[in-house]
Design a protein around this nucleic acid. Structure first.
Lengths: 216, 216
DNA sequence: TCACTACTGCGACAATTGGTGCGTTAAGAT
DNA sequence: ATCTTAACGCACCAATTGTCGCAGTAGTGA
């Protein structure tokens, strides 16, 4: 072991990379992430290469490889950045209205041109890193949506003990399923119908959680 | 335009290549398709390369490139071959039972090890060809499942004019959504709960089609 | 049985992509 | 203003992907 790291001024075993999120780095990051989105929209999930991203962003290939490692790193960063917004679920005053509005947002995002969101979902299958980032994003989004169910319970539209997550998944899954996996043209009012179905099942108590054993 | 194609013995604009689907070609095809599935299970959707498939199958790279062109062609052929079976939806005697059994089959296929079905779904995003083959397979499967709804209608479990496709999608979408897109560990009885929810909404008439205008 | 030819295997080739040392630039602190 | 060093650009190499010409093998029909 050579004492190549004397560290004269105290213990700093892993000198925190002392990130410099200042001007240049931040600018480069934005350029690269924008390029990733643009490439995704243009060439789809698997047309995404480090080379093309570097070329479009005007940043050198080597820089991208060093900071992001590979395509998975790029996607993960894009997904993490996508979660850093102030998005809030719609608030229309009724459960079905909220779910329908939410589903319309989802459908709009999935059928938008260029299909960036759809490509992002597909691309996140390509690497472990992107996969984890994608899961974090899903988790964050569905967690934010739980307020929809809480409001409905407060309005006495739903029974206490309604499983918010299951209800939200039941309401949104058909939209994702049809637009992402099945890839069939959506029916006339896919968002509204899915919302209506879920709200109907919910008010019938389909998402009641079993009362926890031992509760008074 | 030069008359460079004299064709003395009648019109044969494109002499059909006179395919030979005989013994050797069929054997090669099976070897290659089996290798695709094995590679998908081992290295996942994007570990699938023409090279690895050729190596595993014992068929030469050039042959694979010639017959299938690229990875998309391989996936499309696998998907088309997957549709050539005699699969029938379960028949348990009740709508909810049928849907639950169907969902269990889906869950089993998606969580199986190695995750061939999940990898196949993810991989089909990689090419136009595979995408089309995948859509054909979805269409075929859901069409075969419509008998579940027909039987339920005959048993008077459901009102006439129930939209079979929408009901089936509502019942199965949560399973696909959670296992393929969200990739969260499934709850204790995901298949059964999704089936119960859909059956409940269905019996409440959530999937009734609007009576066609002009009907008596 | 024999000729015909579609199909396959082989090896070599160009093109693209993934990844890495090294010198230079510029952000952040004194 | 100037120093330190994280971050960048250039050049280069290694690995992979995709294609082609040619010779050999094996279905197919006569």
């Amino acid at each position: 072991m050579t004492s190549s790291a004397p560290e004269p001024e105290g213990a700093r075993p892993v000198p925190p990379p002392q990130r410099r999120p200042g001007g240049r780095s931040a600018r480069i990051r934005r350029q690269v992430l924008d390029a990733v989105l643009a490439e995704l929209g243009e060439h789809g999930y698997d047309g995404l290469t480090v080379d093309s991203v570097a070329a479009r962003s005007g940043v050198h290939r080597a820089t991208v490889y060093r900071r992001w490692g590979d395509v998975g790193g790029l996607l993960a960063d894009v997904l993490d950045a996508a979660g850093d917004d102030a998005w809030q679920p719609p608030d229309t005053g009724s459960l079905e209205g909220d779910l329908a509005a939410l589903n319309r947002e989802i459908q709009d995002a999935l059928v938008a041109e260029p299909p960036i969101v759809a490509a992002l979902i597909a691309a996140s299958f390509r690497s472990e890193q992107a996969d984890h980032a994608q899961r974090r994003l899903w988790e964050d989004r569905y967690a934010r949506c739980e307020v929809i169910v809480r409001r409905a319970v407060e309005r006495a539209e739903l029974p206490l003990g309604t499983d918010a997550r299951r209800l939200l998944i039941a309401a949104t899954a058909p939209v994702y399923h049809q637009l992402v996996l099945l890839r069939t043209p959506p029916g006339p009012d896919l968002p509204g119908q899915a919302a209506r179905t879920a709200a109907l099942a919910a008010s019938a108590g389909a998402f009641a959680v079993p009362p926890p054993a031992g509760d008074t």
